[in-house]
Design a protein around this nucleic acid. Sequence first.
DNA 1: CGACGATTGTTGCGTATACAAATTTCGTGA
DNA 2: TCACGAAATTTGTATACGCAACAATCGTCG
Lengths: 148, 148
Amino acid sequence: MKKPATTVETIATTCIAGRIRVLNRVITNLYDNALRPFGMKLSQGNVLAVTAKLGVARPAQVCEILKLDTSTLSRTVDRMVDNGWLEVVPDDDGRSHPFRLTDQGRQLMERIIPAWEKAQVEAARLLGEDTLRMLDAAILRINMLDEH
Amino acid sequence: MKKPATTVETIATTCIAGRIRVLNRVITNLYDNALRPFGMKLSQGNVLAVTAKLGVARPAQVCEILKLDTSTLSRTVDRMVDNGWLEVVPDDDGRSHPFRLTDQGRQLMERIIPAWEKAQVEAARLLGEDTLRMLDAAILRINMLDEH
DNA sequence: CGACGATTGTTGCGTATACAAATTTCGTGA
DNA sequence: TCACGAAATTTGTATACGCAACAATCGTCG
């Protein structure tokens, strides 16, 4: 039964969030480098992928899945519409602004797959199998909380 | 020996980086909320903590530890100097701009500890012990690469 | 000494991120 | 119907992040 006695000097190495952020930067840069030739970054790629899965996507729904603030997604979608990868579709409910992939967006997804797979292999090698299993578990737990 | 046959619809749920980013957003928000009463966000808290550990810190060194681009740190340090938490110290080598905590910065660190600990407990509960172990392992592997 | 390459940071620019506040539209109850 | 609260999204503002280009300083080799 030892009391940890946190000191400012120990926080740097023990902070869970700090270490997740380091991980995030390293891995994100890896994918961003892989996607750069296509003029696309991972954050937009994720939106594209989720939209591909949903068919027609409502912003709130995508934000729920990606745990993104709606204001963040709003501007990301703007850029992707400008790039010709997404298009807004009309909806009965005037408050809703659903969107979907354009043909160009779907073609881009297809073209990107090899680069994405390469980054995926690299990331898996870098992190190790155990880490990947734990990532699955962590995401599961996070998603469970929302449904509760 | 099955070929995975990646399709655009499956990428959303399998992308390692995408899931790490989700994790990062959830956990970062948790700590940012805890630190908000102190006018401080986690990203600055990490710089503060690393600086506390180093005593006198050189930018390149902090960037190496946090895997941050030097341009990002440069501007974060500016803000923290403006806030009175860091001070730049002179150096023989005119290229170097090392910095350290001010008294005010160290006092802030001390005051923050309870809130940080609370977030830390919450994050640990949310992620589970196994995930924390994987985080240790992942960071270790990442740091090993640099030394190689 | 003096030019040149290497080291160390900073600036310009565009995207990503979230909170707070504003906006638009919807549903409902008087 | 119309007024008001709820729901869905956008705007305003500030920080975080990285790449490319620039700036400043240092070492060294001739």
